[in-house]
Amino acid sequence: MATMVATGADSAPTSSAPTSSAPTDMLAAVAVAADRTDPLAALEVRRVPRPVAPEHWSVVDVRAASLNQHDLWSLRGVGLAAELLPMVLGTDAAGVTADGRDVVVHGVIGATGHGVGPDERRSLLSERYPGTLAEQVAVPTWNLVDKPAELSFAEAACLPTAWLTAYRMLFVSAGLRPGDRVLVQGAGGGVSTAAVRLGAAAGLEVVVTSRDAGRRERALALGATHAVEPGGRLPFRVDAVLETVGQATWAHSMRAVRPGGVVVVAGATTGDQPGAELSRVFFTELRVVGATMGTKEDLEALLRFCVRSGVRPVIDSTVPLARVGEGLARLASGEQFGKVVVTMADA
């Protein structure tokens, strides 16, 4: 792991005009290269210019951010073009605007045209614009959602990617209702722990899979009704499967869902070339749909859900920005249970 603190002014954001009282640079976690076999070797924690907000954008003082598999994929060069390096990483954040507003950042840019115009294709922060693993981030003002007082900055920072994806998979893509049954493939990651907590709070019967007995027990403690080993026999066919694992679990997902049910796909951590199982798809009239994060309206609904239900994100560990490499190493190991949160020095 080659995490280092360096100085430099060659990252993507432009700097604001210097003042006598404010520093002109800030600390950030930056992808400086692409390394498919050792992604952490492509990471540097360095000084970069503070962002400037163009018209219809705002600068947010980040109080907390959270890590996602997207950050590791970016360090591998997946979805991050070489000509855009170096790039500040991160898609999730909660913080404070210049006028004192506590906000959560919705990290999808370009989906609505706000701040970038109607012709720009959708991207996530850290793909075309500098991300949230920094002391400040600039985003379209439209992308800011009020942070409820009931949630801490660390809790709120867990929501915009993994938890938003789980919310959309459960309630929008799958359209599940209280009493429905859902299989969550893989226990312990950010999306899966979110799906268990949200599903249980909404009255769903949630089944999870994991190779690790300890993780199965923890998933049951979070509200899952059943926990089985990968590929294990379920006590019933489910109405929906949430699939983020891919090749290793695909055949099991196809067998587990009832005729007419739905498999919602939001990732493929073990590979994206599963056996198609086409005969099962058409014979049992299954639906296979994709999900990527969610809309700003979904995020607002998720925040309200958390406030009303008392559900809070599961935080595995917290690291300061200067030691973000340790958090990414834990994420890469697959040993985390819940979200890894990054805090700023003044948070």
Rank of each mutant, 00 (worst) to 15 (best):
W142R: 15
V60R: 03
S173M: 06
M1E: 13
V288W: 04
A2Y: 11
A34T: 05
G260L: 11
G90D: 03
L124P: 03
T14S: 12
P259N: 11
L67N: 04
E335P: 06
A134R: 05
A94P: 00
L234A: 06
T284P: 03
G77H: 07
V241W: 00
E44F: 02
R122N: 03
S66G: 07
A224C: 08
L84W: 10
S126C: 14
V116R: 10
A162R: 04
R312G: 05
M4H: 15
D35Q: 02
E217G: 10
S123Y: 01
G275K: 15
E217S: 14
L27C: 05
P259W: 11
L220H: 09
S16E: 15
M169N: 08
P39S: 10
M344C: 11
V145S: 04
L133E: 08
A195R: 01
V289I: 09
C306F: 03
G115R: 11
V145M: 05
V245L: 06
L328E: 00
A166M: 12
D38N: 14
Q336R: 12
H252T: 10
E217T: 08
V5K: 09
R36S: 15
L151E: 07
G325K: 11
V265M: 04
E127C: 08
E243H: 08
I315F: 06
N68M: 12
E83R: 13
L43R: 12
G77N: 03
T112G: 09
L164G: 05
V60E: 01
D71Q: 14
R330P: 04
D25V: 11
V262Q: 01
A134P: 00
R304H: 14
P230Q: 08
P39T: 13
A345M: 04
P230M: 08
G77T: 02
M169E: 15
H114Q: 14
G100L: 03
L286T: 05
D35P: 01
Q136T: 14
S309C: 00
G246L: 09
A93D: 08
P259C: 11
V241Y: 03
T3S: 15
P274R: 15
A12E: 12
V139N: 10
A29E: 01
F337S: 01
G310P: 03
V340L: 15
T19C: 06
V96F: 08
H70F: 08
E217F: 06
L242Q: 02
V191E: 04
E229N: 00
G188F: 00
L27T: 14
S279D: 05
V257S: 07
V32S: 09
L302D: 00
K296C: 02
R197L: 15
A329G: 12
V262N: 00
G223C: 10
M4C: 10
L159W: 10
M344I: 13
A111C: 09
F305W: 06
S126Q: 13
V139E: 03
A29H: 06
A22D: 10
G338N: 07
A240L: 05
